[in-house]
């Protein structure tokens, strides 16, 4: 399907660390990347409850997961400002450390 260029849904350009800057239509959104998943096997239900259901809704700087599904299939951590939609840097999720 063609990208609706006059749709009101924004038009992010995402800098994939592998492929370069691409249209957001090549990506899949994956949620808040500032949350840390409890290590596998963590038996604490409260930790999981927190991770799965409780989210901040910040105005401003945000870290989020995006997967370049139509490109290199890598999951990225992208900086995006939720107030201005300005896109910052991105790094591969598997390369640890902050962007």
């Amino acid at each position: 399907m063609a990208t609706g260029p006059t749709g009101n849904d924004g038009m992010l350009r995402i800098p994939c660390p592998h492929c370069g800057e691409r249209d957001y239509t090549e990506f899949r959104y994956g949620g808040d990347a500032s949350k840390i998943r409890p290590p596998h096997g963590t038996a604490d239900a409260r930790a999981w409850q927190e991770y799965v259901f409780l989210f901040d809704n910040p105005k401003g700087a945000h870290l989020e997961y995006w997967q370049h599904v139509l490109g290199c299939r890598q999951w990225l951590v992208l900086e995006r400002d939720t107030a201005t939609n300005a896109v910052g840097k991105a790094h591969l999720a598997r390369s640890q450390g902050s962007p």
């Binding site: 492929c19 691409r22 249209d23 239509t25 090549e26 599904v69 139509l70 490109g71």
Partner: peptide
Amino acid sequence: PIDLRSAALPVGSFAQTGVQHACV
């Protein structure tokens, strides 16, 4: 949806992208 100008996609280069939401 990618930049096809020769500076961005020179001869001998490639890009992974999508056609009608399927990867190519």
